[in-house]
Design a protein around this nucleic acid. Structure first.
Lengths: 209, 209
DNA sequence: GGGCTTGTGTATCTTTTGATACCGTTTTTT
DNA sequence: AAAAAACGGTATCAAAAGATACACAAGCCC
């Protein structure tokens, strides 16, 4: 990929041109396939990734179950990798591509160095932490206080807004996984919504009305 | 308070002596009473606090209910204040002292400046974010996956450990508040624990056995 | 002392959610 | 084409937790 193309895809928040230049100099462009595992629990991080295209699912594995932490999307970096890299700890989570993706990686030592040189890098890091925190807080509140049917509807409307379409492509099973419940519960609720005329159900997708 | 005393109470993580010196030069020492409100939603932050002694409760106010985010304890700073200060946003939460406390505050512009000068300050910030995230993640998992009785027991044993005593001073009502449930549920569960010989109940406190 | 507030025990009822099981359909794989 | 996997509908049952109501005791304020 051309340097200029990569530059164009780097988050706009990096205002210092010296920083952008350093990124190009030290960074490496990678393509990964769907379901490729980028990082496992227990690994040290040599590289910090920024997603250029695609999506990485970050989760923890506990005993029997999987805890979804967040998705790293275009222009974002992985908060867990970041702090692991910063303190030279091993990763406590997994990162797996949900689709064919392109990422840009640079040596972790730069994370520390750049903090002392570039304000916009600092802002990016703090923004990363803060927005993950807010996101998790939202999930927490919702799990703690909202009944599942409301959470289902919120999930659907938010995705509709984000993807700018009323047709949400997701199976009941995966929706159950996202919300931490079971397939039967989701099917039951969605059927109820359909009878109330709130949605129309298709195999593999849900249409908001 | 003597400068040397303050120095002694600052978190040890600030290894650069120049940073410690700057803190003393620019910082201001404050005493607050129990139930004093240090920061309200909507306020801009002029100062970033580090708690020297005591404890600050940080929470959000939503419609009818209150969401407890975390407690800021000795040596810690407030993550929400930090990021609000960093981006010059207003606070989205409240901070109230749970007991008479002593805090050390400095102008928020230093948050940014120090990042470019002191590695240990950066480490402190990232540590602050990461540990709040882990803490919230723990609560999330617990709310999402653990039945309430287990959460009650975890809460009690953790506090017992932290305070190094088997006698936990808390009312059923406040315990319900901490865990996001109701008084009746807590009373019911604790009574069950007592019958199983796990605890002994007193007015206003619970003894682990 | 008398009232008020806080803390606790407990019973009853209802709702929500999860667990399990079984069925039929569609899609993918072999 | 046959088999397997994924998808979705639905019924039944059980458990967890919240809502409400009432009672009584302890501590605090006048």
């Amino acid at each position: 990929m051309e340097e200029s193309e990569i530059l164009a895809k780097l988050p706009l928040v990096f205002t210092e041109s010296a920083l952008r230049q350093e990124m190009l100099t030290h960074g490496k462009f990678l393509k990964v396939n769907k379901d490729d595992t980028l990082i496992r629990e227990g690994q040290y991080l040599d590289f910090l990734p920024i997603v250029i295209k695609g999506e990485i699912r970050v989760f923890q594995q506990k005993e029997d179950r999987e805890i979804l932490l967040y998705y790293v999307r275009e222009g974002q970096t992985c908060m867990m990798s970041l702090s692991a890299a910063y303190f030279n700890h091993t990763s406590s989570s997994y990162g797996v591509a949900t689709k064919p993706s392109e990422i840009f990686v640079f040596p972790t030592r730069l994370v520390n160095e750049w903090q002392l040189k570039y304000s916009s890098w600092n802002a990016y890091l703090i923004q990363t932490f803060r927005s993950r925190y807010d996101e998790l807080l939202g999930s927490f509140e919702s799990v703690a206080f909202d009944p599942i049917d409301k959470r289902v509807l919120s999930y659907l409307t938010e995705r509709a807004k984000k993807e700018n379409t009323a047709q949400i492509a997701i199976s009941h099973q995966n929706l159950a996984y996202e919300l931490g419940t079971t397939r039967v519960v989701i099917s039951r609720i969605l059927k109820g919504f359909e009878q109330q005329g709130k949605v129309k159900l298709f195999r593999g997708s849900i249409q908001l009305k």
